[in-house]
């Protein structure tokens, strides 16, 4: 069974870390990740850019509505995610519009990825 582990934390707190504190946390996480990788259990790992860099596409209306900022409601639940390559935000929004046409209702939050490690898991 594959599991997704979704990381939540207070952005105020993480954003208050000094470079050294941030690096120290990342180093500790890397120890755990290395172990998982050695066991062949580690898939992609991504650190997302802050929520200030997020854009949200509401697809419960046609045409969908693009809003600045992260998904900020509680009435829907996280059900899946994509990682896609895009030359610009506009490219990726086009992609989400295609997806929205295929599956209306709910929302997509588009968030740039800061750091990405592909991992070595096979389907």
């Amino acid at each position: 069974m594959l599991y997704a582990i979704l990381c939540y934390h207070s952005e105020d707190v993480v954003g208050s870390w000094t470079k050294e504190e941030d690096a120290a946390v990342m180093a500790k996480l890397a120890v755990v990740q290395d172990k998982l990788a050695r066991e062949g259990r580690l898939g992609p790992v991504a650190r997302l850019l802050p929520t200030t860099a997020a854009t949200t596409l509401r697809k419960d209306q046609d045409p969908p509505l693009v809003l600045d900022g992260p998904y900020a409601e509680t009435k829907e639940q996280l059900l899946g995610f994509y990682l896609v390559e895009g030359g610009s935000l506009e490219d990726v929004l086009d992609t989400t519009r295609e997806l929205a046409a295929a599956n209306p209702g709910g929302a997509y939050e588009v968030r740039p990825v800061g750091a990405f490690f592909p991992g070595a898991l096979r389907p």
């Binding site: 850019l49 200030t52 935000l89 740039p112």
Partner: peptide, 16 residues
């Protein structure tokens, strides 16, 4: 690189 990526992403958003 991370700060540059964040800056570029924000410009992308703002340009819209």
């Amino acid at each position: 690189g991370a700060m540059i990526a964040e800056g570029l992403a924000l410009i992308d958003k703002a340009m819209r």
